[in-house]
C-alpha cells in the first residue's frame, strides 16, 4: 500500500445538478474523495445513488451539457478537471484518465475493426503512424490476453464474445498508459465466470502499470476483491469512506451496515436474505436532513438535521449524525 503519497485525484464538494422543469435538482452533492497513485477506490451504491454521475462529471460527460451544471473541484495533476475546456478535456481523456464502461456489447463501434478502434485512440494522443498505432493496438490486445491478437485485430466487434469485448475495451483504456482508470461497473453485464476473469485482468493491469483506479460497482463482493478503499454513496452523497478491510469489519454508517448485511454470503447464511425496506429517494425529493433516515432502523428525531461527512479516524469518514452510537441497537 502506498500510504504517504499525495493524492493523484482530489475531488472536493462535487455537485452536479440538472434542470428539472425549471428548478435545479442535485444528482450529486457534497461529494469529496481522493485517490492516490496506484490505489483502487471502490465507489459503491445502488442504481441512482450518483456514483456514475460523479465519474462521468470527472470525464466531462456530465454537468457540461445544456440543462446541467456542476460545481466543486477535482484536482488532478495540477489541473481542475471540472474546469478544463473542450480541447483540454479531449487531450486528457484516454490519455491521463481512461474509462471502461458497463456494456461491452454496445460500447464498441460495430462498423470498425477492433484494432482500428484501439489504434484510433492511440493516434489521438501520440505522434505515430497508422502502422505503428496498429502495432501498439495489437500489443495492447496481447497484454489483455486476447488470443491471436494480430489476427483478431482485424475482426469486427460482433465477432467477439462479451468477455472478449470487455478485454478489447480494457486494451483501449490502457493503450496510452494512463495514470488512472475509471471502471464503471465493468463486470455487471458479464457472466459470473467471465466477471472473475475480467476482475483478475483489471487487478493485473493496475499492478503492472501502477494504475490508480476508481471502480464503480453495486456489488460489495467485487469491492472486497479488487479495492483498497471504498466510498459508499447514497442518494447523491458519500455516506461512508474508508479502508475496505476496516469498513467491512466495522461499518460506521447504518446504510453500509445494511448493504453488507444484504450481501448473500455462504459463510453467514441466515434464514432469509437481508433487505432494506423502502427505496432510495429521487433527486427531486431528497430529504433536507439525513437522506437515509426515512429507511433507517436507527433513526432518531435529531436525524432531520443536515449532515456532513466527518473524519472519524485517519482515512475514515462517516456521515451518520449518530456517529457510531447506533451500533449498540444492532444486536438487539
Amino acid at each position: 500500500m502506498t500510504g504517504a503519497k499525495d493524492p493523484l485525484l482530489n475531488v472536493e464538494n462535487l455537485r452536479v445538478e440538472i434542470d428539472f422543469n425549471g428548478a435545479w435538482v442535485p444528482l450529486v452533492d457534497d461529494v469529496s474523495f481522493s485517490v492516490k497513485p496506484g490505489e483502487t477506490l471502490g465507489l459503491v451504491g445502488e442504481s441512482g445513488s450518483g456514483k456514475s454521475v460523479s465519474a462521468m462529471s470527472l470525464m466531462g460527460f456530465m454537468g457540461r451539457q445544456r440543462g446541467q451544471r456542476l460545481s466543486g473541484t477535482a484536482a488532478f495533476q495540477g489541473k481542475d478537471l471540472l474546469r478544463l475546456n473542450d480541447r483540454e478535456l479531449e487531450s486528457m481523456r484516454g490519455n491521463e484518465i481512461a474509462m471502461v464502461f458497463q456494456e461491452p456489447m454496445t460500447s464498441l463501434d460495430p462498423a470498425f475493426k477492433v484494432g482500428h478502434q484501439i489504434a484510433a485512440g492511440i493516434r489521438v494522443h501520440q505522434h505515430v503512424t497508422a502502422a505503428q498505432a496498429k502495432e501498439m493496438a495489437i500489443e495492447a490486445m496481447d497484454k489483455v490476453r486476447i488470443p491471436s491478437a494480430r489476427v483478431r485485430a482485424d475482426s469486427y466487434p460482433h465477432e467477439f464474445s462479451g468477455g472478449m469485448r470487455q478485454r478489447v475495451l480494457i486494451a483501449m483504456a490502457i493503450a496510452n498508459n494512463p495514470s488512472m482508470l475509471i471502471a464503471d461497473e465493468p463486470t455487471t453485464a458479464l457472466d459470473v465466470s467471465v466477471q472473475a476473469q475480467i476482475l483478475a485482468l483489471l487487478t493485473e493491469m493496475k499492478e503492472d502499470l501502477g494504475l490508480a483506479m476508481i471502480f464503480i460497482t453495486h456489488n460489495m463482493g467485487v469491492v472486497a476483491d479488487i479495492c483498497d478503499r471504498l466510498a459508499v454513496m447514497y442518494a447523491g452523497q458519500i455516506v461512508e469512506e474508508g479502508d475496505v478491510f476496516e469498513t467491512f469489519a466495522a461499518p460506521q454508517h447504518p446504510y453500509t451496515d445494511r448493504l453488507l448485511a444484504a450481501m448473500p454470503s455462504i459463510a453467514s447464511r441466515r434464514g432469509s436474505l437481508e433487505w432494506i425496506p423502502g427505496s432510495p429517494p429521487k433527486p427531486t425529493d431528497f430529504p433536507a436532513g439525513c437522506r437515509f433516515a426515512p429507511r433507517c432502523r436507527h433513526r432518531l428525531d435529531s436525524c432531520e438535521q443536515p449532515t456532513t461527512l466527518l473524519e472519524i479516524s485517519p482515512g475514515r469518514s462517516n456521515r451518520c449524525l449518530r456517529g457510531n452510537t447506533w451500533m449498540e441497537e444492532n444486536e438487539s
Partner: peptide, 9 residues
Amino acid sequence: YIRTARAQG
C-alpha cells in the same frame, strides 16, 4: 460506442 470513442479522446 460514441461515448467510448469520446472517452478515448
